Simulated scan of single mutants.
Amino acid sequence: MEQTSPTPDFSVPGDGRLPGPTALLREAVARGIITDDQALALDRLVREGGTAPDEPRDDERLRFVTGFADIFVTLGLVLFLGAATYFGYEHLGAVAGNALVAVLAWGLSEFFTRRRRMALPSIVLLLAFAHAGFSALAAALGVTGHGMPWPDLVGPHPFQALPLAGAALGAVLLVAAHYRRFAVPITVAAGAAATAGLAYALILATAPAFARSALAGLLFAAGLAVFALAMRFDLADPNRLTRRTDIAFWLHLLAAPLMVHPVLSKLARADGGASGAMLAVLAIVLVLAVVAIAIDRRALLVSGLVYAGIAFGSLIRAAGVTGATVPASLLALGVFILALSAGWHPLRARVLRALPRPWAARLPHPIGA
């Protein structure tokens, strides 16, 4: 859903040089002067004319802050909305209290997102709006647990499944309305998360035993679906000029733990951390590294690093090193991350050359293809 109204600038500024074509296109999109599709068309025109790129083409670029003002405003928002949440619960109850916070978050977005286009405050306000809206709906529909004012999502009972589905559906509609108004890139990931919750709640309502026993598989399937959606946005903007690339970043950040955690957590617990299982964990992490390099997205790999550290620790302990297992594990993990970071660009060129040429040419920043 494309918009031409002013939206938060989530792109990254240049390095002090005169702005080149790519930087100008990003700024024009951020200010609502041109649309995403027009930016892509202009970028193709520049490249067909032989103009050299004005910046590196194979790095993830995302702006969280435009200056210290973003941090200062975010601090104020956290304090204000946190206090509003507390007083709302105390004096209005869970439903009205959360609804109040959602209304406040929307109202503040009108100024800090739509008018000021501040990146970090926009992210915080979206998360506050989505959480408060979902919590208000869940409380109104009776999805609570242990006397707490927020929904119990750890293990809802079957009779709570349909109310949970209703709250999730309401959250999807709320974040869709928020995106239509403000177009904050992380909103699409929030909507995807709410949709995954809706699907799980519906499965829980119809087959509660299956939903609990197959939770890991359902999470993995949801991760694959979110990953496919992220790649759709990535492939639509291979030069990473428009809002689509920021949407893809947040979707990858959501998809990664959904795919990685169910598989690697089960392996990490297998046979009390046996060497074979730990080697399998490291093999999967290496596969994730190859995929992350191919699509030029580090988020997919970062989610597996915790389990890679656990695997390194188990293997080091199995080798007889018991006195310094944690430092040795951190050392091995640090070496792996630094080596991968230092060799990211040449490794990516090799991976893309190994892929079929039509595939490599469609991936973001098709260097070496």
Rank of each mutant, 00 (worst) to 15 (best):
A308F: 00
D234Y: 11
L153S: 10
G82M: 15
L104M: 13
P262D: 09
P8R: 11
V306W: 11
L204S: 02
V302N: 09
A277Y: 08
V184N: 12
Y86K: 07
H91R: 15
I123R: 00
G14L: 01
V263M: 14
I295E: 00
A165Y: 06
V321F: 04
I293G: 04
T51F: 14
P121D: 12
S122E: 08
V73K: 02
L340P: 00
V103T: 13
L229M: 10
H131A: 13
T245Q: 05
T66I: 03
L218Q: 09
R240K: 12
A270D: 12
R26V: 00
D70P: 00
I33D: 14
V101R: 10
R362M: 00
L305N: 11
T51L: 13
D59F: 02
R181A: 09
E48C: 08
G67R: 01
V335C: 01
F159G: 04
F249L: 01
L25P: 02
D59W: 13
A328K: 01
G16A: 05
L108G: 04
I295Y: 04
T206S: 10
A248D: 02
D271I: 07
A361E: 15
A228P: 03
Y200A: 07
A280T: 14
A214R: 06
F87H: 06
L215T: 01
V226L: 05
V46S: 11
A140T: 08
A94N: 05
A119K: 00
G191L: 07
E27V: 11
L40N: 05
S329L: 03
R297N: 13
A369M: 01
A39H: 02
V263H: 11
L120S: 05
P21Y: 12
G166M: 13
R44M: 09
F111P: 02
L169F: 14
